[in-house]
Design a protein around this nucleic acid. Structure first.
Lengths: 249, 249
DNA sequence: CTTCTGAAGAATGTATACACTAGGGCTCAC
DNA sequence: GTGAGCCCTAGTGTATACATTCTTCAGAAG
């Protein structure tokens, strides 16, 4: 074709666009690069992302609707500073959603998928040694994602969303001392073991207890006065009668 | 004051603003004024709301993040046309969240609040007679909201959000014949009755069954092939073993 | 009659301009 | 020193302009 169709006159790489700005900003918030409560200066952010304020504001609105950012008219937006009660509810939702996902998934797990779960666990253990949190986070996410693989796309999405949010606060507020790490590791191993035995309900219970314990620690840090009612109630739905007492230390 | 300070040169009434546009558009979608799948023309909408495309787009992004609107780059946005599987998950979430809310609320209900619940039910019955759906919807929302009153603000918000979304699809796809209405009425009455007896768990179960039945009808309409796995699993968490069979007809 | 092609028109994505508000620092009185 | 009040700048909210991309429809080819 001889017609002068400029293949790519300039910016051969695609420009950022709202989606990209949204994704980057979201990651920065979820990784804790931008601390909860911090102000989000539109001018600075726009410059930093190499974009004008128009698409930036759209990305911010998406994050606002998602609850990651709080906006009041005429005031500067801030990264959401979560309340203890919201942590309680967030973890309660997570317990319920993941339990549903695991219950639907375990009966359908094929041998190679079980192997993948084991591999994720081993990668976590290896990551533990390095001392670099990121090395551990990735397989940890993978582990939880694999457990709900066959739950159906919309449910998986809801679970991952809730998980990402929760992980932010876990990373920010619970300093993982060696004892806690050992406990966490034991809990994960126990979940896998139940999966291997094809005991979906037992896997659900163990995972729920694991999450509930984290929630209790987290809520305790943020507001020792607050009773985590939602988390306790969620656990009661998932763990059968008579076992609730033993469920949470 | 002789200095020519124009008190209000133009638009003395407050201009719409993003929040207002968002709220109005959201309501139009949730009320079904704009049908699922319908395209959202930014120019037309902006004109209709008396606003430029800039704030309109921000409102649309919020709705997108919320899942009410689907956007693909460079393509026109559309009101989300939900899939049967998403209905399944949505109702499953609703069952879990409302169950949690009711379990937390019923023990704390004061006599005057119980009276309010009864009054909401009576208003529903009255609205039924008129034949005007709106007359019934409002007290119906009030009824469900009262049942989770003491669940704590963040949980109430999550419940209301899920409820609003679900109600859209119920209104759109289930034509309420007299027999269904009678059944619905019986179910609501049964929930109230359990509340009056302070039997939180029984109220939870009855409400969950009510929601599950609606979900099964809805999923059946949208895709008769699809097995509503999530809803069934959610019900299993809330309804104790051995009662599942009787729970859903 | 159906399917492809191309070009005009329509709609989206982003940048910029500008009006208005919030809030931070400064002065000044005490 | 300390607090109240004012002013000025930084920052937000919206409108408009323009480049780019999609959509649609008329007309040609099969």
């Amino acid at each position: 074709m001889h017609t002068d169709t400029p293949v790519s006159p300039r910016t051969p790489a695609r420009r950022p666009g709202v989606r990209a700005v949204y994704a980057r900003l979201r990651e920065e918030i979820l990784n804790g690069w931008i601390a909860p409560g911090e102000v989000l200066n539109q001018v600075h952010l726009a410059r930093r992302f190499g974009v004008s304020r128009t698409p930036l504001r759209e990305a911010l609105r998406m994050l606002e609707a998602e609850g990651l950012v709080r906006a009041r008219p005429q005031r500067r937006m801030r990264v959401t500073a979560i309340q203890a009660e919201e942590i309680d509810v967030l973890y309660a939702q997570r317990i319920l959603l993941e339990s549903m996902g695991i219950a639907l998934t375990v009966p359908l797990l094929r041998p190679d998928e079980l192997r993948q779960i084991r591999e994720a666990l081993e990668a976590m253990h290896a990551g533990e040694e390095t001392g670099d949190p990121a090395e551990w986070e990735e397989p940890h996410r993978r582990f939880h994602a694999l457990l709900v693989r066959h739950a159906g796309h919309p449910l998986v999405r809801a679970i991952v969303d809730a998980g990402e949010r929760a992980e932010l606060y876990r990373r920010l507020f619970v300093r993982t001392d060696p004892m806690t790490w050992a406990l966490t590791r034991k809990e994960h191993d126990a979940v896998l073991e139940a999966c291997l035995r094809r005991e979906a309900e037992e896997a659900v219970r163990r995972n729920a207890r694991h999450l509930a314990r984290t929630a209790l620690v987290l809520v305790g840090r943020l507001d020792p006065e607050l009773e985590p009612r939602a988390t306790r109630q969620a656990l009661r739905f998932v763990v059968p009668e008579g076992r609730v007492a033993e469920a949470v230390p």
